[in-house]
Design a protein around this nucleic acid. Sequence first.
DNA 1: GCCAACGTTGGC
DNA 2: GCCAACGTTGGC
Length: 307
Amino acid sequence: MNVFRRFVTTVMSTSKTKYWLLKAEPDSRIVKGKDVKFSVDDFEKVKTSPWEGVRNYEARNLMKEMKEEEQALFYHSNCKTPGRAVTKTYRAYQLTHNRCSRGIAAFAKVSKEAYPDYTAWDSSHPYFDPKSNKDDPKWFMVDLTFSTRAANFVPLALLRFLADQPSSQPPEDLAYLGEKGVKAIKTMDLVTRGRLSVQRVGEDGWEAIQLLAEKGGWEELDLKPKKKGPAKGKAKEKDAEDGSKTKPEKKKNKRKRKDEEDEDEHELSNPSDEEEKPPASRKRREEEKGLQEISNPPTRRSMRNRK
DNA sequence: GCCAACGTTGGC
DNA sequence: GCCAACGTTGGC
């Protein structure tokens, strides 16, 4: 009995493997004369790469939590290429063919735990930050090692499509996902808060992505976001309520600096203490999230199917 | 410490 | 290319 219990706890604690998602830009973008592009091809070629250039506290803190051997999704973000503008035609093509380079392209492993991001100290570097120095590094990075490509590139549009569905019933073609899979996708940070460049991924989410990447099967689905009525204007009115034409209504409330986070989070190995003292911005976000869940307003995307 | 303006991100 | 979202800065 005891042995069994010990076994169980051991398994449980070791199987507390965490999963992550990290974004990179697959298209060229020139910053301070240097190209910050890093595509799945680049990744596959170099095999192991430091994840430098993360300049967001929350993302940094997540990287500090990462442990060697933990697994990660490699995500292609923004596919626009400045300097070679995305044409309307191309955009239309993307939409009609569900083609878009945004999505999960590969799998990786953490191969080195967080260490100071030295690119912040190099004034010629695109990610130079004068406020960081060797004695008190402000930014950190991990090393990631390429594992394998996703047999089927898992487009963001697909995840959004699934997340936007009213039910958790997967479409027939993706029955293998099960309700569990769809539910997991609905709650992925990737879907609920696009901008974070380093994200946590739950076990169910991880499994769902694995399945999608392995099995595919969404060719027949129309992934175009549904337009939900005259959403754009509607949503705004709703937000502003009778506040009428308050143009800058976006300011909302407290916007606070987060350097205190910088200060006292040298050991945030414990995820729960992160929970306990969230930065103001996160608090706000969570408040909003709570509201969202209650009122279930149109998604960001559906709010602006302009034209 | 608060908040408006600003700049960046990134989806479309 | 456009613009909403949202983090950061800086004035008060």
